[in-house]
Amino acid sequence: MNDIVLQTRGLTKAFGSLVACDDVSLSLNRGEIHAVIGPNGAGKSTLIAQICGGLKPDTGHVEFLGQNIEGLNTRQRALAGLGRTFQVSALAMEDTVLQNAILGALGSSGNTWRFFKNAMKDTDLRERAEHALKRVGLDDSLEMRTAELSHGQRRQLEVAIALTLNPKTFVMDEPMAGLGSEGSRKLTGLLDGLREEAPILLVEHDMDAVFALADRISVLVYGKIIATGTVDQIRNNAAVREAYLGEED
């Protein structure tokens, strides 16, 4: 099982009497997109926060590339290769698109302690930033202020920043949220090509995207994983239909 990149083992997190995450064990293999779906309040965000270091689980732990990473904070997990995108875009809104991407390149270069060189004229940072922006299709809006981007473009930028970090895995929190069908289709195409580079743990609400992309799907309901399997297995799973998919039909 050397193919496992990311593994959670028995993650449990309670807020008072509400168990937001109940003994969640799931794995992400090399080259796959593993989607986590579930109705609102199922504990998807709590799960992501525990994987990325924002929340400490009550019990259980996360293994990344075979190492227990419980001792690492958000920043250290990012440096270890966890590339995260946020449900609500976390971007420097006053800065340009290029500046945001350069910030990402700066993070992985590790050398923030330069006070005199112009960051925008650093060819190494700039090349990596522009390369990532080109891949997500933002290379014609380099000088635009991030605040002026459309919702979908901000999503693309989030992915671009994650790309500049050369991550070993992506953790994406509802990247399709708030996108129109056109934006959603574009982003689906982008993510489809990323899985070979680094596997994606995709927490998502958009069923079309999930069914189009995922190699495996886990269904989270009330903090518990009630089923894990391929797209077809999940589609035909009676418990899943009742808990989740039934609502949408």
Partner: peptide
């Protein structure tokens, strides 16, 4: 650049390491 970004979104700066 990093200092300025930290003012706008601390989460972003931490997430790039």
């Amino acid at each position: 650049l990093a200092l300025n970004a930290a003012r706008q979104s601390e989460q972003r700066v931490e997430t790039v390491g």
